[in-house]
Write a protein that binds this DNA or RNA. Sequence first.
DNA 1: TCTATATCCTTTGCATACAAACAATTTTTT
DNA 2: AAAAAATTGTTTGTATGCAAAGGATATAGA
Lengths: 140, 140
Amino acid sequence: MSNLPEDLPECMVFLLGKAYQKAHGDFSRRLRPYGLTNMQHLVLEGLWYQPGMTATELSKLLILDKATLSGVLDRMTETGWIIKQPDPEDRRIQRIYPSEQANRLKPNLIAQRQESNREILEHFSPEECILFKRLLRDLI
Amino acid sequence: MSNLPEDLPECMVFLLGKAYQKAHGDFSRRLRPYGLTNMQHLVLEGLWYQPGMTATELSKLLILDKATLSGVLDRMTETGWIIKQPDPEDRRIQRIYPSEQANRLKPNLIAQRQESNREILEHFSPEECILFKRLLRDLI
DNA sequence: TCTATATCCTTTGCATACAAACAATTTTTT
DNA sequence: AAAAAATTGTTTGTATGCAAAGGATATAGA
């Protein structure tokens, strides 16, 4: 009834989880010297794309829970990666900006993501890469 | 330099993370009525495959951190899904078994995983499914 | 205008994740 | 056998991840 070793490699939740685990771990190690986590890096990329977004906007762009984001933003404010500014129009809102420090490191940080991506895909042919991404996008 | 909306769909860490997020969420909802989490379900499948494994063995089979597993096993003992028995040969070791309750629900639980898997893959052709799994396995 | 509803964000509670340090116990070395 | 090294599992600390509830504020509708 249960043949785990044969079933696991067929189980998508497991495969996706482990593939993510590996990619996440690799990127994570790359970011460690900067004192940034993957999630925090992602937030910065979002803010570089559009500075001054609200938490809700960021949450939608990055497809992540607002409760999770709330904590992430707190820590990033503490560590000086971002700056929160109250919105004069709507007192419920805080607009979020990358800090100077973040902007200084922007080229290096973006390069790290690109490198990490290359590393993950280096064992696949260009056609496989395209297909792989399409399959993942279709799943999401 | 940073064109997030164009880059995100190309970034493997992001794609893998979101694909996993979705698959995990789906399976999670399926398991909620049983009071089981995805991880706990995975542990049970491991123990059904080979009852009496040690935490270290389970940790290797399921590719997960021993510190994480330690907490999972604690909660599963509390909630009566597994049973820990000391090993008479080696006092460092505890052998782990699925409980009666777990065994009773085994057919239903395994069916849930299979259903969840089908649901995730239903938008892909049989060839795509095979390829998708191969790509994920090669990545791991 | 005043109340009901909606929005934004935070907080709480629980469950992973994983690095690092540890205690207990075995195994290996010398 | 005594000391050193390795193994097993737990604990601690930090960071997600998400459901659910809550507080503050804004908007809509009567």
